[in-house]
Design a protein around this nucleic acid. Sequence first.
RNA 1: GCGGGGAUCGCCUAGCCCGGUAUGGCGUGGGAUUGCUAAUCCCAUGUUCGCAAGAACUCGGGGGUUCAAGUCCCUCUCCCCGCGCCA
Length: 420
Amino acid sequence: MLDPKIIRDEPEKIKEMLKDRAVEFDLEKMLELNKVRKDMMQQTDELKQKRNQMSMKIATEKKAGNDASELLQEMSQISSKLDDMENQRKTIDDDYHKLSFSIPNMIHDSVPKGPDESFNKQVRTWGDVPKFDFEVKDHIDLGLGLDIVDLERASKTAGARFYYLKGGLVKLGQALTAFALDFVSKRDYNLIQPPYMINRQSMEGAVIADDFEEVIYKVQDEDLFLIGTSEHAIASMHYDEILEGGKIPLRYASISPCFRKEAGAHGKDQKGIFRVHQFEKIEQFIFCRPEESWDEHEKMIKNTEEFYQELEIPYRLMLLSSGDMGKVSAKTYDIEAWMSGQNAYREIVSCSNCLDYQSRRLKIRFREKSNEDTKYIHTLNSTLVAIERTMVAILENNQTKDGHVEIPKVLQKYFGDNLI
RNA sequence: GCGGGGAUCGCCUAGCCCGGUAUGGCGUGGGAUUGCUAAUCCCAUGUUCGCAAGAACUCGGGGGUUCAAGUCCCUCUCCCCGCGCCA
């Protein structure tokens, strides 16, 4: 949700944002509804004032023992008229609310403008792309060869884009998780494990309506949805709260499985464990003051880069263009890891500053002192490690000529060996 | 799952039986008094719209009864106690 001040005072900026994002949105309708809504509000307010005054009059007359039947009759008329008007207003209000919940976030000035990913900007690269003197395999062939993944049986029991991990790959996932938890604990984050299902209200606070159907699984006959990422559960954790200044910034490192429909990804990455309906992830999520959020954003992406440096995974850091960014984000960095089997950099991290966009939806405010006005807090989120995708990078980059996989040095003590 | 008790403007709390402008405290800010600190006293302190005056809204969510609902009725959610079931 956007600041109503922007909607009122600077609609041309919103128009520009919609164009930069290449998003269809009926802004005119929203502005018109807002106007009508405000007019009606004023009218109903006046009527309500009349009703309140009248109600008081009736109370005093009755207390004095006087006959109030004439007043009662008048009051009855006012009430029914007010009912009618309120019903009309509610319809308009609902429409406005829907639009205000689906309009995307404003875009930061540093974001490159362009309709798609070809306008993303490479910020820097790290590490050397590994060279092999044999024919490299992708993670699927490696995994099947070592018998550490079973995709066929998964498609039988669950469908496409599911997987059974086996033996060494299970251990590698556990090692990565243990290493990541240690890494993040040393850096001033609070570990947290959220509910894997949350209700509609919470989900709508964190996810924009257009993405909802494409991404989110619903639990039948319950007001529950499987989280697409722990971001959804952490953002809504402080729903309708006023946080104390002394306690922020709040930095959470959340561990959870993630469930995604991948409805818009037909044919993309059809095989393997790169794009799947279920995966494990450790996520960084920060609530902070508005003036801190751009610093926190930079710190968070640096933090994440250091994680991949310790794992010795070559990557490039990308600044996403206005058209490629998620709709709730004002600025997003992606880390794309080198994956030898695909001979390409592929996305493994997404790091976003959402400003006050999520907190307005979720009514999350803060104040330094208890008699101060409340302000909306800023929210930021970043992958620390998406376990399955990171395993793809490790398998493909660390493969040996005879089809084995070397375990990165920092993981060896967690894995208990140096080779799969 | 069953029975009982609860949810009030940051926190605690009165009001509900018996319908008629939401009580008090804590915390916080400002002021008074004081050599300083402490203590005491006074004022302010929910949300929205508004430059302001002001007005509206607000008692877990939704619906109903009524001229009028924190208060009465229905329903849902969550919390506490007891019973049942259970990894």
